[in-house]
Design a protein around this nucleic acid. Structure first.
Lengths: 179, 179
DNA sequence: AACAGGTGTTTTACCAGTAAACGATCTGAC
DNA sequence: GTCAGATCGTTTACTGGTAAAACACCTGTT
C-alpha cells in the first residue's frame, strides 16, 4: 500500500459513517456492514455537498432543481418539451410543470405551443435566462472546485472514475430511461 | 494503467453525467467541469440508490428517515433525547418531532420525561420496534449488497475508501456538529 | 426570590415534491 | 369517419420537510 492510500484509508476511518458502522458491529457482531460504507457515505456526501454547494445559487435566487432545469436548456442548446425536461432533470412531470410556471413568471424561460401536436409545448431560455445561467455557472463551478480541494487531484480523479463506474452500471442494471 | 482501471474509466465515460459534461463542453469549451464529475455523480448515485434501496423498507411500511431514527436507537443501545436523534440522523428537530409522533402511534418507540429536567424527553425502542429493526436490517443489507454487486470487490473497497476520505474531510472543513 | 438569558422541544405557517386522476389531443385499426 | 387506447401536460389532494416563533423549563446573577 502506498503512503497516499494509507492516508486515505486513515481519513476514511474517521468519518461519521465509520462511527455508525462501528456501533452496529458492537450490537450485531459479524453483520456484513460493507454496503453501508458506500451507500451511507454517498447519501451523506450528497447531503453535505448540496448544503454547501448551493450557496452561489441562492445568491441568484435559484434552487438547485431550478438551476438544473435552466442548465438542461442551456447545454442542449435547443428547445425542450416539459417531458424532455423531466427526463433530463430526473424529476416528475408535475414538478417540472410547477418549476416552469415560476421560471416563466420570472422571465427566465418562454414557451410556445407545437404547431402540429397541440398537446406539447416547447420551452426555451429567454435572453435573461441564458445570461443568468452563463453568469452563475463559472461561479458555481469555482465554488465546487474549492469545496473539493480537500482531496488531492489524484484522489479526485480516482473518485470520479469509480463513481462513474458505479453510476454507469446502476443506470444500466436499474433500467435507463434516457430518451 | 491496469486492465481493471481501463474498464472502470470506460464505464465512467458512459454514464449520464459524462453525457451532460460533454454537452457543456460543446457549449462552453474549456470550462472546468471537473467538479461535476464528482458532485453530479454523487447526487445521481444517491438518488438512484435511494430509489432502489428502499424497497425492503417500504415492505415494512417505513421510510428511510424513519428507519434511520429507529436504527440510531438500536445501534447506540440506549435511550436518546429528540435532540440527540436530530443530531444522529442529521435532520431538524421539527422533523424528528413529527417522526416520533408517528412512530409512537405505531408502537415502535416509547417516551418518558426526564425526572430532573422536565424539558427533555427520553426515547427508546419498544420490543416491537427492536424486533422490527433487527428483522429488517439483514434484509436491507443483503439487498444493498446485491445492488452494489455491479462493482468488483476491489472497486467497492476503493470507492468506500475514497468516499470516506471525502466525507471525513468535508465533515472536518464544513464543521462537524457531533455531540 | 426574581429575572435575564439559554436550552430542549413543539407548534405554526408554509413550500416543494409526489401519485393519481384528469382533460386534451393524437394515432392507428376498423 | 370514428372510436379505443396511448401520450402529453396539468391539476388535485396529500405528505413530509423547513424556518421561525412559541413554549416550557433550567441556570446563574444579583
Amino acid at each position: 500500500m502506498t503512503a497516499a492510500n494509507g492516508r486515505a484509508a486513515d481519513a476514511a476511518r474517521n468519518d461519521t459513517v465509520a462511527a455508525v458502522v462501528r456501533q452496529w458491529q458492537t450490537v450485531h457482531p459479524g453483520l456484513d456492514t460493507g454496503p453501508m460504507e458506500i451507500i451511507g457515505r454517498v447519501n451523506r456526501c450528497a447531503a453535505l455537498l448540496q448544503q454547501a454547494e448551493d450557496a452561489p445559487l441562492r445568491r441568484a435566487g435559484l434552487s438547485r432543481p431550478e438551476f438544473d432545469l435552466l442548465g438542461a436548456l442551456r447545454r442542449t442548446g435547443h428547445e425542450l418539451t416539459p417531458g424532455d425536461l423531466a427526463r433530463e432533470t430526473f424529476s416528475s412531470g408535475a414538478a417540472v410543470t410547477k418549476r416552469l410556471k415560476q421560471l416563466t413568471e420570472r422571465g427566465l424561460v418562454e414557451r410556445r405551443g407545437d404547431t402540429r401536436d397541440r398537446r406539447v409545448a416547447h420551452v426555451r431560455l429567454t435572453d435573461a435566462g441564458r445570461e443568468l445561467v452563463d453568469g452563475i455557472l463559472p461561479e458555481q463551478l469555482a465554488y465546487e472546485t474549492a469545496v473539493l480541494s480537500v482531496l488531492a487531484p489524484e484522489a479526485r480523479d480516482e473518485l470520479a472514475t469509480r463513481l462513474g463506474e458505479l453510476l454507469a452500471r446502476l443506470e444500466g442494471s436499474l433500467g435507463v430511461l434516457r430518451a
